[in-house]
Amino acid sequence: MASNPNPYLVQPLDIGNVVSAGIQLYRTHFKQYFGIALIATLWALLPFLLVIPIVLFYTAVQTYYGTLGLVVPAWIVLAVYCSAKYFAGAGAIARLAFGTLINQPESLDSAKRYANSRIWGFWNINFLLTLMYLGVYFVTVVVLLIVLSATGIFSLLTNPDPTTFALNPAPLILAGLFTLLLLLAMVVIFIWLGSRFAVADLPLATETGSNATQSLGRSWNLTYKSAWRIALILFITFLITIPLQALAQILVSTFNAIIAVSFPQDSPTFALLSFSVGYILGLVAGVVVLPLWQSIKAVIYSDLRSRREGLGLKLRDS
């Protein structure tokens, strides 16, 4: 298409190219995306940092415990708000990335404003997804418990009797196999659901008039028949983040070695410094990786819309 400077977007992308395109997007907009990710991560960090003065206060004064009834709910509200700010930041990155992909780039402020105006939508999406994953987990555990107790293996496990086991080991072995299979099934379901809802926050971040549940529904529809392809894309992305994690790990070890020169390894100062360095580097790694995932999700989303809705297929205006 002569009018489209980006002819690749019209054609569906191969698995590897989705990942490469996401990385290229991130590389070319590193400053912008990294900045948003940094602020978003600091928001997510705030409630945890606040715990420190609160704990210090109560251990120091040893009284006023009655006020905890007020402090704890206030903290929970703050934590919810801060996590929402984090999700909105992630949404803003996704919005910017998608805008670039469809050749409608947007200013940083405008993308942030848009995402912030839907802050509770992003929170709801993540809340619902978390509930869903917890649901799958609990169902798995309940099924396991029911099957184990119904077959009498549960009582065998809680009251291990070596003689009965020696006489008939088959039930226990079968139980072990069953548990393994069930766990495997749970992992497969997790991966499958994760792929079906991989672009759950993209519609909310990019389509006007979308809300949390509609956004989830859109992700579900768009990923129809694409779940395993998306799972492979996400896995390749994960593989590419491994060198980064390895780099962080090396830095942590180096810092530990440096700290160990000045402080004995069993001193509290060493533990504190070592922990802080590891924590900060972990945080930085998280900040670096968040835009990568969001960019790749934006590419997946635009690719899915191209496949499922013909996004970009347009004739000249006559």
Partner: peptide, 12 residues
């Protein structure tokens, strides 16, 4: 050029 994604996939 192949891109890191396709190369990682091939290597995998």
């Amino acid at each position: 050029l192949a891109g890191i994604g396709s190369r990682a996939l091939a290597l995998l």
